[in-house]
Design a binder for these strands. Structure first.
Length: 257
DNA sequence: AGAACCGCCTGCTTGC
DNA sequence: TGCAAGCAGGCGGTTC
């Protein structure tokens, strides 16, 4: 599922291939996305990631904002053959960008461009002080907090598990129980893991593919997620799987305190 | 106010 | 083998 590194990968690829180009037309294939039909054609000025959202800024002061949610993907195709489960497309002189989304959770919003600045993105702009003041004392478990888009941008289940495992912090811990030293360790670890994810063009466990349909390589870097019952790479104990807020958490009870 | 829960979706896996 | 139930989960909206 697309999280920060996957969305970043797409934004960079999009910027390169559609930046400066004119959108000839768009087409909606799924009534759920009917709102995307109101787009006035324009030239792509820039493609930016805002959290997990893809902001495609046009020269006519509007933006196409895409959130891929669970199974959404963007696919570049030189020919106009519709891939299976395609829900929307953007047509350029030399090719098409398809939104492919089997489960239909993805959203497209047409909005006015804003220069909103995000301060809770560990890779693209993070305000430690604001975070510690507003989020660090919350009475939720740390795992849930890491995944809360209002607390931190772009972190989903896979990266949340990896960040806690590599930080040596138990997912059961209340956010409010972490010391400043532990928070700093979490921040540093998270930055490292997210950047690695970007370098590897995302984590392809099941269906993630980049703009050109290629899987990423970060699945080979995972140390906790999806490894239930397998040996912990640090202590050799068993990785456990529990449910938190309806989502699976993978962790090592011995290494994560 | 803030934490917990629900609903949106459909393809794949599991159990009988 | 076939079919139904279970599962996956981001996140906005609703409820507690």
């Amino acid at each position: 599922m697309p999280e920060l590194p996957e969305v970043e990968t797409l934004c960079c690829q999009l910027q390169k291939i559609i930046g400066g180009k004119a959108i000839r037309s768009t087409k909606v294939f799924d009534d759920k996305l009917a709102g995307a039909g109101n787009l006035k054609a324009g030239i792509v000025r820039d493609v930016k990631r805002v959290g997990k959202r893809i902001h495609i800024g046009l020269d006519n002061h509007t933006s196409i904002i895409i959130h891929l949610r669970m199974t959404g993907r963007l696919l570049w195709r030189q020919n106009s053959t519709r891939p299976e489960h395609s829900r929307w497309k953007m047509v350029f002189k030399d090719g098409n960008v398809f939104l492919v989304d089997p489960r239909r959770f993805a959203t497209i919003t047409i909005g006015v461009s804003t220069s909103e600045k995000i301060t809770n993105d560990l890779v693209a702009g993070f305000d430690h002080t604001a975070f510690l003041k507003q989020q660090a004392r919350r009475r939720v478990n740390i795992k849930t907090l890491l995944m809360d888009p209002k607390a931190l941008a772009g972190i989903g289940n896979i990266y949340a598990c990896e960040i806690l495992y590599c930080s040596g912090i138990s997912p059961y811990r209340q956010a409010s129980s972490l010391s400043l030293k532990e928070w700093k360790r979490v921040f540093a670890t998270a930055k490292r893991i997210l950047k690695k994810g970007i370098e590897k063009r995302g984590t392809s466990i099941s269906d993630w593919r980049d703009l050109y349909g290629r899987p990423g390589e970060n699945q080979h870097e995972l140390k906790a997620y999806g490894r239930e019952g397998k040996p912990c790479k640090i202590c050799g104990g068993r990785i456990q799987r529990i449910k938190q807020g309806g989502r699976s958490t993978f962790f090592c009870a011995n290494c994560q305190k």
